[in-house]
Simulated scan of single mutants.
Amino acid sequence: MDFGYKEEELVEVLDDVADIKDLMVFNDDVNTFDHVIDTLVRVCNHSVEQAEQCAYIIHFKGKCSVKRGLLKTLKPMQEAICDEGIDARVI
Rank of each mutant, 00 (worst) to 15 (best):
I58M: 02
D83S: 15
E7K: 12
N45G: 08
C54Y: 07
D22E: 10
N27I: 04
D38M: 07
E79Y: 10
H35K: 08
V36E: 03
M24I: 09
R42W: 06
F26V: 06
K75A: 14
K61V: 13
K63F: 09
E49M: 01
A80G: 13
V17D: 06
I20N: 00
M1F: 12
D2Y: 11
L74I: 15
H46M: 01
V48S: 00
S47P: 04
S47K: 03
V17R: 06
V90W: 04
R68C: 10
C82R: 15
G62K: 03
H46V: 01
K63N: 11
L70C: 13
K21W: 02
C64K: 03
E84L: 06
N27D: 11
E52R: 05
V25N: 05
V41M: 02
V90G: 07
K21D: 01
E84I: 11
Q50N: 12
L40Y: 02
V48Q: 00
S47W: 04
A18E: 13
H59R: 01
E12Y: 07
V41K: 00
C82H: 11
V43Y: 02
K21Y: 03
F3W: 09
A51H: 00
D87S: 14
I58C: 01
Y56H: 13
T73E: 12
V43R: 00
K6D: 15
E8N: 10
V41I: 11
H59W: 05
H35T: 08
Q53H: 08
F60H: 13
R42K: 11
L40P: 05
E9K: 09
V43T: 09
H59P: 01
D34T: 14
L40K: 02
I86C: 05
I86D: 03
E9D: 14
I91G: 13
K63P: 06
F26W: 06
V48H: 00
I37G: 01
I91C: 10
I91V: 14
E8P: 03
F33H: 06
E84Y: 03
P76V: 14
Q50K: 04
T73P: 03
V41G: 00
V36W: 02
A80W: 08
Q78I: 12
K75E: 14
V90Q: 04
S47C: 08
K67M: 12
D15K: 08
A18D: 10
V66E: 06
V17I: 09
F60C: 08
E9C: 07
Q53M: 08
I91M: 10
